Amino acid sequence: MKNFMTLILCTIAFAGCANNSVKDDPLASFHASKPASILVLPVVNKSVDVMAGSSVLTTLPQLLGERGYYVFPVHTVKTLLEMEGLYEAQRVHEQPVETLASLFGADAILYVTVHSWTSKYVLIQTTTEVDLEYIITNRVGEPLYQRRQKLRYTPDSGQSNSLLDQLIVSAISAAVERADPQYIPLTREANARAFITTSNPLPPGPYSLSYEKYYATPKAD
């Protein structure tokens, strides 16, 4: 009886350690999957700017490639999806994950949604905002990584001894930002924060020089 109780206690303790390990490692599913390739789907654009989706797609592949992953060429992806009758990003996102993964032979799929992509002009100040959501799943739809970034940019009008001069400079800065909003720099920053500078960033891929060292290091006690 004593041996039986000891066995039960050991089993409970082991289960507790396993649960703690999973809890301590927020990227446990990603580490178990270790994807080598990422399929970046067309971006679902919920903003009123029709260029938002394509602008996001111009900034992501290089970042993911530099992180050590093979990224399927976005133009090739778009063409193949259209050959399958999938022209709208929302319809693509609604397709079974297994279907999309098998179509391209991808290990992981990245879904990006633009929630906001605006440049607001109020009085003599223009503020540009982006709100992007990123979700990576494995080839059977299990979530591996998820982040959301909301960034805004307001031009700095600088300092001036004259209130009138400051108002003029602010008005000019606002007009420039309104004419040419800093969407791309903001999007690049959002991408970097989502995958690199965030806590628990995207692990390096197999084509990264730090891949072997990263996975040789224990991720949780």
Rank of each mutant, 00 (worst) to 15 (best):
E66A: 11
Y153Q: 11
S173K: 14
T79R: 14
Y87R: 10
G105W: 00
I124T: 14
P155W: 04
R148L: 03
I168H: 10
L163V: 13
P96L: 07
E98F: 08
R148M: 07
E98K: 15
Y70E: 05
L80F: 07
P143I: 05
D156F: 12
Q149A: 13
Y121D: 14
P155I: 00
L151A: 03
S116T: 07
V74P: 09
S162E: 02
D165F: 10
S170T: 11
E142K: 15
Q146V: 12
P73G: 11
V92S: 02
H93R: 04
N161C: 05
K120N: 13
A171Q: 13
L80E: 14
V130M: 07
D180M: 09
I172R: 13
V92L: 01
Q149K: 15
D180P: 00
Q125N: 15
R148W: 03
F104I: 01
P73H: 08
S170V: 08
L110M: 12
R67G: 08
H115G: 10
K150M: 12
T127Y: 08
S119L: 00
P143H: 03
Q182E: 06
T118A: 08
H115P: 03
D165E: 15
P73I: 05
L164D: 15
K120M: 08
L80N: 14
E98I: 09
Q159K: 11
Y111W: 02
N138Y: 04
A175S: 12
S119T: 09
T113M: 07
H115M: 06
A179C: 03
E142F: 09
I109A: 00
F104N: 01
I168G: 01
V77P: 08
D165W: 07
V130P: 03
M83H: 07
T128Y: 03
E88R: 10
V92I: 13
I168R: 13
Q146C: 04
H93F: 02
V169F: 08
A101T: 06
E177L: 05
S173M: 11
V140W: 08
L167I: 12
V169N: 14
T126A: 13
I124C: 13
R91N: 11
L163M: 13
H93A: 03
N161H: 08
L103K: 11
P73A: 08
Y145V: 05
R67D: 04
T127R: 04
D131L: 08
D165P: 09
L86M: 07
I124E: 15
E94V: 01
W117L: 09
E98N: 14
R148E: 12
I136W: 07
T113V: 15
W117Y: 14
A106Y: 06
S119M: 02
P96I: 07
K78F: 12
I136L: 13
L80Q: 15
V114E: 05
E66Q: 14
Y70T: 09
V114M: 09
T79S: 13
V176P: 04
Y111G: 03
G68I: 01
G105K: 02
Y87S: 06
Y87T: 13
Q90C: 03
I135R: 10
T79G: 02
E94K: 04
G85A: 00
T99P: 03
G65V: 06
L132V: 10
L103N: 06
T127W: 05
A106T: 01
S173W: 06
S102T: 15
G141H: 06
E98P: 04
H75M: 12
K78R: 15
E84W: 01
V169D: 10
A89I: 00
S116K: 10
A101F: 10
